[in-house]
Design a binder for these strands. Structure first.
Lengths: 134, 134
DNA sequence: CTGCATGCAAATCTTTTGCATAAGA
DNA sequence: TCTTATGCAAAAGATTTGCATGCAG
């Protein structure tokens, strides 16, 4: 049988979500922990991790692996593309036209089933680019 | 001044590289460690990590973050796209036509400098797909 | 009440690092 | 002999987990 998951209301989970949803950057669990701690001084890192995992599983938020050895979280669950700065590892949403047709291109000569993709563009972010010009 | 790096020959590094280069899968550092240990019973995990990082920096191999909380390594340094199974997390090379033009699409409305991209397609790998049909 | 959620600490896992020694040039 | 590489163990980070307790339904 399928796992039945009944969610109780939780002030902590709400706070985590409220913090993350309006953000444009993509904080780590630890950053979220430190932010939410201002409202809930006793909240624990474990709770933050548990809720972030839960929310990601439910598809309410996204988990992003950008290669700096810690997961980042994105309050926007809809598929979209990211830019990761090779220098400072900041993660930025890219607003670009839909290119889902690449799934079809990828499916050629592949025996598995492709259901989507994540694209990480890389290079230098506006900030690092500016610093460099100095 | 630029950092001058003089590489000595190293049997261990060669063994790591020889193990990785012909592979089609994308093992983790630990998997590589266990494999190379058969030839060098005394090799240490630290040495494996040090050499993998070094080789990745030199552009001889690639480091791949696929979201399972450990880095995978790809003996093919040339840009190409990967498929990651949502179920078993195996990482598979995709052979598909070049779609580098998406960099240009992504650069629209973006103030940073885009120098490339990594695409991770996801879905079910041939193996998991087969099991499911049973 | 009954079960889900939390806080806390300990445990895991992955990766990095310091240091004394070994190997390469 | 001088520098780079290694092995080992400890350290550092990130994430997970066990458990007793607290809160929601």
């Amino acid at each position: 049988m399928a796992t039945t998951r009944t969610l109780n209301k939780s002030r902590q989970r709400d706070a985590i979500l409220n913090y993350l949803l309006p953000r444009k950057d993509h904080p780590t669990a630890d950053a979220i922990y430190n932010a939410v701690k201002e409202e809930f001084p006793n909240i624990s890192l474990g709770t933050v991790y548990r809720n972030l995992s839960l929310l990601a599983e439910l598809g309410v938020i996204q988990k992003i692996s950008c290669g700096d050895n810690s997961e980042h979280f994105d309050g926007n669950p809809k598929p979209h593309n990211h830019f990761i700065c090779s220098e400072c590892y900041s993660v930025i949403d890219l607003e670009m036209e839909n290119i889902d047709f690449i799934d079809t291109l990828a499916a050629t000569n592949f025996n598995g089933k492709i259901s989507g993709h994540n694209i990480y563009f890389y290079g230098k972010c506006p900030n690092c680019l500016k610093k460099e010009t100095n």
